[in-house]
């Protein structure tokens, strides 16, 4: 280092990337590689790992609970995601143009999304309490039968889905931004041509929004699929009678309750591959629709 050469512009830019890359290496890549490689070992975290080849995958594949957990996870993704995305879109449309208290209304929609998970779960345990919870009191006063929600294997999943419908702040903001990007001149022109509100929606707004809604759905699906664990742990714990026992919970219990980190890791592979499949599907559809994928994905 006797000659100090000034760094090139690009290298100085790369220096700004360094903390991120080092952080990612230490906090994500190394731990993830460790986690994923455990699939080929018998490891109980207490004694040293032992190589077992693909045994863990066979163990997981033949585990009844595993199959059940994948089904439950799928149900808990497929049902709420369309509802959440459509809800976010309709709300964004409703709160798009100027009016009284617009900012306050938008804030109200976003508010449930900023409640810390532990507090949010507690709140819904109360709201859906079978005897004293406001939802059931409301249903009963309307003369309807009140389900037991988290205490009933049939109603626990609808309960989880219901509580997820209030946390759609991100989707709401994305839809709002996308709707604002549609030039008003486009609608004006259509209106001059005699289009009514319904036609405007069908032929102008919806086609322009479709790619966003699709991407939003996929992102929501991946997030719900992977990160639903906290909610489940804080509310139903997988019950009653395994009705909300999902794949992340299976992984969690294999690892932290059974100390079987090998099978947990094998299930983790399945989860990662399923996530990859969702992303692949997204990519293919986006290609078909010729969406500028690199740009739009990152809008979300």
């Amino acid at each position: 280092m006797n000659k100090v050469r000034p760094l090139s512009y690009h290298n100085r830019l790369r220096l700004l990337l360094l903390p991120y890359l080092v952080g990612v290496l230490v906090l994500v890549i190394i731990p993830a590689l460790l986690s994923f490689s455990l699939a080929f070992f018998r490891y109980d975290a207490l004694s040293p790992p032992r190589w077992v080849g693909t045994l863990n995958f066979i163990l997981v594949y033949t585990d009844e609970l595993f199959a059940l957990s994948v089904q439950n996870a799928a149900a808990l993704v497929l049902l709420p995601v369309p509802l959440r995305v459509m809800g976010a879109f309709l709300l964004a449309r409703l709160l798009l143009r100027n009016g009284h208290f617009l900012a306050w209304f938008r804030a109200a929609i976003y508010l449930p999304s900023i409640i810390p998970p532990a507090a949010y779960a507690l709140a819904w345990l109360w709201i859906l309490n079978p005897l004293f919870g406001p939802v059931n009191l409301l249903l009963r006063s309307a003369g309807l039968s009140a389900p037991a929600w988290f205490a009933d294997p049939l109603w626990a999943r609808p309960g989880l889905i219901l509580m997820s419908l209030w946390q759609i702040g991100e989707g709401f903001l994305v839809c709002l931004a996308a709707l604002q990007d549609i030039p008003p001149s486009l609608e004006d022109a259509a209106r001059v041509d005699g289009a009514n509100g319904r036609q405007l929606f069908r032929y102008i707004t919806l086609p322009l929004m479709a790619p966003i809604l699709l991407l939003l759905s996929f992102r929501d699906a991946i997030l719900t699929f992977q990160e639903s664990l906290a909610t489940v742990l804080l509310t139903t714990g997988g019950g009653p009678y395994y009705s909300t026992y999902t794949l992340p919970l299976f992984i969690y219990e294999q690892g932290f309750d059974l100390f079987s980190f090998g099978t947990a890791s094998a299930a983790l592979w399945v989860m990662y591959l399923l996530t990859g499949l969702i992303v692949l599907l997204l990519y293919v559809i986006a290609r078909q629709w010729q969406i500028g994928i690199t740009d739009e994905v990152f809008l979300l």
Binding site: V24, L27, S35, F36, A45, I222, Q226, L268, M271
Partner: peptide, 22 residues
């Protein structure tokens, strides 16, 4: 971009126990 996307797909549950070692 691809790196960041791939990292986004790593479920957080994959990191809990091994981050402990870090």
């Amino acid at each position: 971009l691809l790196l960041s996307l791939a990292l986004l797909m790593v479920p957080s549950i994959a990191l809990w126990s091994t981050r402990f070692f870090v």
